[in-house]
Structure formats: structure tokens, C-alpha cells
Amino acid sequence: MKKPVLRSVAVATVIGALSFGALAQNVAIVNGKPIPKSRMTALEQQLARSGRPVTPDMQNQLRDELIAREIFMQEASKRGLDATPEFKDQLELARQSILIRELFNDVQKKNPVTDAELKEEYAKFVAANSGKEYRARHILVDSEDEAKKLIAQIKGGAKFEDVAKKASKDPGSGANGGDLDWASPNNFVPEFSDAMVKLSKGQMTDTPVKSQFGWHIIRLDDVRDAKLPTFEELNDQQKAQLRNQLMQQKLAKFQDELRAKAKVQ
């Protein structure tokens, strides 16, 4: 009688060890189907890429999320929803998106932006933005007639800043009396910058200036030589923005080259 009992205990021990091993390799087992830990890792990476790094406190929430997904997936499969043409098309689109994202990640890893490239790009930026900076104010309205009336009011003694606060439809500068702060002419649309640079310090445009945004009344408050920091004076955030801009240019060039080589019929 002892041998069968011992044999049963041994079998139970093996089964228990197998169950423990399965759980150690998986997040959970739902209706006999394991959820591998690699899926948890993939979900964590997905969240991290979207700017939401996973903290230890979130582990249980992620586990619950994966279990819920598995339960719903199993039910969808029971209903045959994974065999429909619509599902297969959506699955292919999702597969393409993931694969393309991995391709671009691979390009970035193998073609990082070097410090030399960063310095060269900033030198181009400095060259393009050197020269003069202008501090101007403007009033933006919808019609030429309205702009002409406001010009008449200002010439009649009304304060430019007060008129801008009341009448300008530019929410950013209007609240500040039309102040646009110091900026390069390249920061403005051509019609605006062309009119602005022709003004003398303290002068206002006699006639309204039309652009894609509406009708402008412009006053030039001051002019100075552009003051740009050296590359070494840039902070980490500024360098990171410049590095990201360069990487986007590299990715755009990579995409253009692939399209140019592709045979499309």
C-alpha cells in the first residue's frame, strides 16, 4: 500500500514543479494558455516609447491589462472574428506599422547624429539668422477698411498699444499691446517682413499690409545686431532639439532614397 502512495506524491511533486516553472516563465496562464513574460516586456517598451516609463508600482496594473486582453482575445477567437477579411486587413496594416517603426529605429541606431554634424548644422543656422533683429508691434484685423480706421485713430492720438489690446485678433501679441518681441525678419511671412524692414525706428506703416492672416498695422520699435549664442553656449535641451531635427532630416533622406530606388508599376 505504501508504494502507490509514494508514487502519487512523486507525481504531484513533478506536476507542481512544472506548474511553478510555467508560471516563472509566464505572466499568467488563462484558460490553459500562457501569457509569456516577453509580452510584458513588449508592453513596457511600448509605453516607454510613448513617454510613459513603467514604474514598479505599475507592474500589477500591466499584468491585469495583459490578462484582460488574453480573455477578450480568446472570446473573439471563439466567435471566429480572427478569421474575417476585415480583421486580416487590419492585422496586416498593424504589422506594417510596427515593422516600419522598427526599420526607422534601426536606421537611427546605425546612423546617429555626430557632434561634428551638430556643429555644422548650428553653423548653418547662425549664418541664416545673422544680421539684424527687429522688435516690432502689430495690430491684426480682418479687413483693409478696419485697418485704415485704426491707423487714423493712432495718427489722431490714440496709443498703438491700447488699440492693439482692443482690436487685434492676434491673441498672442494683442494682449501685450501688439508686441512681437525680438525676432529675425525670417520669422515672419514675406509681406510682413518686407514692410517691417523698410520702417525707421518708431515709424508705423501708413497703409495696411495684407498677408494670409489678414491686414496688419506694423510699428517698428527697435533694431539691433542679432545676438546668437555660440555652439558651446547652447544648453542640453537646445542641443537635443537640434539633434532631433538632424535625425528627422536623415530619416527623410533615407525614405526619399528608398522611394527613388523602388520600382512601382
Rank of each mutant, 00 (worst) to 15 (best):
Q90N: 13
A42L: 13
A164F: 00
A175E: 12
L93T: 11
R101Y: 03
Q241A: 14
E133Q: 15
D106Y: 08
K148V: 03
Q90L: 15
N129V: 04
E191Y: 01
A175C: 02
L150A: 02
Q241N: 15
P112F: 09
Q59Y: 08
D221N: 10
A94N: 10
R79H: 14
N244Q: 14
G174R: 05
L150C: 01
M1S: 15
G172K: 15
S193T: 05
F254Y: 12
M196W: 03
G178D: 05
L62I: 06
P34H: 05
L140K: 02
R63Q: 05
T207V: 11
T205S: 08
K119D: 06
R243W: 01
V141F: 02
A152C: 05
I218W: 00
F254P: 01
S19L: 14
A123L: 10
N31S: 13
D181K: 11
P208G: 03
M58S: 06
S130K: 14
K88S: 04
Q108E: 15
N111G: 04
L246E: 09
K261C: 06
A127G: 06
R79Q: 15
L118V: 02
Q45L: 08
E133L: 03
A68L: 14
A17I: 08
I154R: 00
L23M: 13
D162F: 00
R69Y: 06
V197K: 09
K253M: 12
A158C: 09
I35M: 07
K253Y: 05
G51P: 04
G157H: 07
N235F: 07
D64E: 13
N31W: 03
K159A: 11
Q74A: 07
Q153L: 02
P185R: 01
K132N: 11
A12M: 14
L43D: 03
Q255R: 14
I139Q: 02
N105F: 06
L180E: 08
K2Q: 11
Q59K: 15
Q212I: 07
